[in-house]
């Protein structure tokens, strides 16, 4: 099936259960938003899908177009088509943006093929221009000393350069002012299309004014408790997460 499918996923860390029979299907071409209060397991879901080794998967499956990714190394999962835009992108001193993305692209090439530097830089500059990033950033160390907005733009730049089939965006709106939020959202909207699926994780409805989702899911205590159309985000914003807790705590 042409989808990112998570089925009955149970995950714990240090003996504490975080994801509880979590299930979600994102068909290619759709944008799904995942909202919910802090500490409900949204970021854990993102990291587990990407292959972070700190989490213990008890049971369940995660597949990309039918192919299992659970238990694979992070680079293998990336090659299978999953990209995770980090909530807190790491600072890597001494590794330039240009060299980093180039290494990531080179890792996707068949043996013996090399990157055409001229074409590579042309594409990189075009995408940086679209994200209103200074071209001088290519030589700067990855995220090193970047502002919150610069880091998030840099995540979207990587996402568009690596052209993944599925994008998981973890709290991409955190730390962004409204201008940066618009620029980042435009970058994401340019990537929307029938060949790509998105999972947009956010705490606030604000981001979803710019990246309008096809489906909104509400997560609480390790699972999805409610799903609906884009308007659900506004309802949630109006009623607040206490409403979620009151409505769904008993069933959790």
């Amino acid at each position: 099936m042409n989808a990112l499918e998570i089925k009955n996923l149970n995950v714990s860390i240090e003996g504490q259960s975080i994801l509880k029979d979590f299930s979600l299907t994102i068909p290619k071409g759709e944008v799904h938003a995942l909202m919910g209060p802090n500490g409900t397991g949204k970021s854990t879901l993102a990291k587990v899908m990407a292959g972070h080794e700190d989490y213990q998967v008890e049971s369940g499956t995660v597949t990309l177009d039918g192919e299992n990714i659970l238990g694979e190394e992070p680079d293998v999962i990336a090659h299978a088509g999953l990209f995770l835009a980090f909530q807190y992108p790491l600072e890597i001193p001494g590794v330039s943006i240009a060299n980093f993305i180039r290494a990531a692209r080179a890792a996707r090439l068949p043996n013996g093929e090399t990157i055409n530097a001229v074409e590579y830089y042309k594409e990189l500059y075009e995408k940086m221009d679209a994200l209103k990033m200074d071209r001088k950033f290519t030589a700067r160390s990855l995220n090193d000393g970047f502002s919150g907005g610069e880091k998030k733009r840099c995540e979207i730049l990587q996402m568009s350069m690596l052209d993944p089939a599925y994008c998981v965006m973890d709290e991409t709106d955190s730390g962004l002012d409204i201008d940066a939020l618009k620029t980042v959202s435009e970058g994401v909207n340019l990537m929307r299309g029938p060949e790509r699926g998105f999972l947009v994780i956010t705490h606030y409805q604000r981001l979803l004014d710019y990246i309008v989702p096809d489906v909104v899911h509400v997560m609480f205590d390790g699972r999805i408790v409610h799903s609906g159309p884009a308007e659900l985000a506004h309802e949630l914003e109006a009623k607040g997460y206490d409403w979620v807790k009151e409505s769904f705590a008993t069933t959790a």
């Binding site: 992070p74 680079d75 790491l90 160390s141």
Partner: peptide
């Protein structure tokens, strides 16, 4: 940092090398 780099598709050893050379840089 290693997880971050590997999530971009860079294999473990190559990511380690990039980080070490970043340390030198």
């Amino acid at each position: 940092e290693l997880f971050y780099m590997m999530q971009r598709g860079i294999p473990r050893r190559a990511a380690m090398q990039l980080m070490v050379f970043g340390f030198f840089e």
